[in-house]
Each structure stands twice: as structure tokens, then as C-alpha cells.
Design a binder for these strands. Structure first.
Lengths: 199, 199
DNA sequence: AGGGCGGCGTAGACAGTGTCTACAGGGGGT
DNA sequence: ACCCCCTGTAGACACTGTCTACGCCGCCCT
């Protein structure tokens, strides 16, 4: 269990997968292609990942980690709870826009429904749970009535997810016209779920 | 250009694809597997579909047609504009729940970004456009102010899409607990975008 | 009726994939 | 010094989507 100066091959494989999915999209992350980019033979990944899904899960986990980091930074830099939630929302759709391939991979449940990674790690499906909890807390502060925080947060969360996805595909632009602005839509979403800002 | 009593092979291939995606999920719709189910050799589909993507697009189009039919029936059976929009919404998440594999396929843009079907057909990406227009009209009636109908409809649409997707994967249940009810969440979504029912 | 012909489906080849298995090389511990 | 285990290599296997060459059958034309 020694790490050479290049980092263990396990990490290098995940690195290569991340690079690949960022550069070429979620359809290009083949097992052999990752191995090629990491400079090893196609059988090498099998020492560390039992299956292709497991490797992809590790790649997707990196995506969730980056997303969580962005959330943390954005929330820390915002003033009130309402602004924090807004920052949260902006980070979500910005991430989906910038890291399109990674975002796709992160929600391709058919590709990563295995446990995905070594025994100690939490299951990938639960990676966003603490984020949801944090957001529910903030939403509760915004609403005043914490009883409804759960459903409102879920409604807002699903809205952000759908907006990020459909916007990234250009479907919203197709419906609203090319001059549509995502910021305006995002504000409308926030107002709908949290009430207008003046409230 | 004669059709035997079994229907042309083109249709039989799409039928087989639909059956397959409904029965086995969106990951099982291989070109050869479809051909196998249709009882022809693996090269036969190539006469009618230039590529695998084209065949999948035709399969997905069937999904959009069924969805449009469900919309039509539900909207026709509802009373006021608000009830019509609610019926619309219920149909969307119900479809995603019942026809999970088809729903996945319909939004796997990487699998079906080709034109997909013969020359006369409209592009698949625009299949939902008339539905959006119809919904925007209804939303305008609900709101009174038709100026905001576009953004509100887009916000609601994306919310339905995200809810359908995340609910179908069980992500919402993971966040809210297993006793969460999708109907309650759906009502909250409608209230958020259209205002409470009493208004 | 007989002869071509054109469309339809078959069958094989090809490159590529994920998974599995057998094997070589090297370092550390006894 | 020896042995063993760990790590990575290399080949096989079944499978995929695409492409090409080839038969077959029914139709139209003379």
C-alpha cells in the first residue's frame, strides 16, 4: 500500500476519468479509454475497481465533491438565508452548465447504481443528502414556518434539477426563444417557492 | 412499398423496441436485441434506420406520442384551467413513474440527437413544443396576466421534469423519508407556481 | 410466359467494448 | 537466498454497432 510520487494508480485512473468526462462528455468514458489516458493496460483498472460502473461511480463522486465545495463557498459568501439559498441555486445550474458531461454522469443512475467504491465510503446515492439538509435549514429560515421546509425544499430542489437539465439541453430556449435568460428564470423559480423578495 | 399483414418491418422494429424498453429498461435497447425480438437478422434494421440512434429516436417518438395522448385525455376531462394544468402535471409524473425506461430514453439526448426518422417528420427535440404552447395558454388563464405565462410555464415545466426524474430514482424519498407522498409534493409545486387554489 | 431487375433481408467481417484468466516482474519479509 | 504476494500485462471471450457483399423473391416489361 505505497504511493509512488505520481499518486497511486487508483487516483490516477479517477483523474483520467474526470479529465475525460470533462473534455469529451459522458458518452466517452469507456473503461479502456480511461486506462489508455492513464498510460496503463486495459486490464489494470480491474485491480482497483471490480467493474466499469465502480470506476464511473468514483469519477462521479469527484463531481459531487466539487459541487459540494462550490456550495460551501457560495453559501459562506452570501448574507441572509434568502441570499444563501439563491447562491445555492445559482451554483447548481452553473455547475450543470459548465461541467455538462460530469453533471450528466452524476445522474446516470444506470451507469453507477453499484456501490461504486471501497467498503468504507458512503453510497453514492446519499452523497447529496447533507446538502439537502443544509438547504432545508436555510429554507426553513426563509419561510419562518419550519414545518413546511421539507416539502418546499424538495419542490425547489427538483425544480433546480429540472431547470439545470432542460436548460443545458437547450429545451427551455426552444420553448421560450433564444433570447431567454437563465437568470430571470432562476429568479422566477426562487420567487415561486420562497415568495417574492420583498416579503 | 406494400405492407404485409404483419405490418412493415419498419413498424415491427419500432414495436419491438418499445416492448423492449418498457420491459427491460433503457439500457437494454441494443440494435441487435431489437432485431432479435423482431425475428430478423442483425443487419435488417439498417434498411430502415441508418443508425442505431435513428431507431431509438423512432422508439422515443412513440413515447412522446403516448404522452401527448395522455395529456389530451387528461386536459379534456378536467374542468377549469387550473384543474387542467393540474391534470397535465399529474400525467407527467405518472408517465415517468409507469413508463420509466421509456421516460429515460426520451431524455437521453446523447442517444437520439440525430434527426431520427424519415425526412418529413419534425425533429424529435420539437416534439413537446405544442404541448408547451397549450400549457402556456392554460397557465395564462390561471394567472390572469398573460405576460408572465411564458416564464411561469417554463418554471413549472422544469419543476415537473425534475420532480418526475428525482422521484422515479427514489432520490426524493431518500431526502424526505419513505413515507413521502408524491401527490402532496405535486400539489406544493402547483401552488408555488400558480398560487394557492383559494386565490 | 419468360427474363431481367430492384428492393429486401441474410451473413460475414471489422473494430471496438467490458469482463475474465493466466502469466511475468519486482520488492519485502523471513 | 529464497519465496511469496502485489501489481500490472496480455490474450481470450462474448458481445456490440457499422459496413459490405451476396442471394432470394416478386414485380414489371417485352
Amino acid at each position: 500500500m505505497s504511493m509512488d510520487e505520481q499518486g497511486s494508480l487508483r487516483e490516477r485512473l479517477v483523474d483520467a476519468g474526470v479529465e475525460l468526462v470533462l473534455a469529451e462528455g459522458s458518452g466517452a468514458v469507456g473503461l479502456r479509454e480511461i486506462a489508455r489516458r492513464a498510460g496503463v493496460s486495459h486490464g489494470a483498472p480491474r485491480r482497483y475497481f471490480a467493474t466499469h460502473q465502480a470506476l464511473l461511480s468514483a469519477v462521479a463522486r469527484r463531481g459531487f465533491e466539487e459541487l459540494a465545495g462550490r456550495f460551501e463557498a457560495a453559501v459562506a459568501g452570501a448574507a441572509g438565508p434568502r441570499e444563501k439559498v439563491a447562491a445555492f441555486a445559482r451554483v447548481y445550474v452553473a455547475f450543470a452548465g459548465e461541467r455538462r458531461g460530469m453533471f450528466e454522469l452524476m445522474f446516470r443512475h444506470d451507469l453507477l447504481n453499484g456501490d461504486g467504491v471501497a467498503e468504507g465510503q458512503p453510497r453514492l446515492r446519499e452523497a447529496t443528502r447533507p446538502l439537502f439538509g443544509e438547504m432545508a435549514r436555510l429554507v426553513g429560515e426563509c419561510l419562518g414556518e419550519p414545518a413546511r421546509a421539507g416539502v418546499v425544499t424538495a419542490a425547489l430542489w427538483t425544480n433546480l434539477h429540472g431547470l439545470a437539465q432542460l436548460w443545458g439541453w437547450g429545451s427551455v430556449q426552444l420553448m421560450l426563444g433564444e433570447q431567454a435568460r437563465v437568470d430571470a428564470l432562476l429568479d422566477a423559480v426562487l420567487d415561486a417557492h420562497l415568495g417574492p423578495v420583498a416579503a
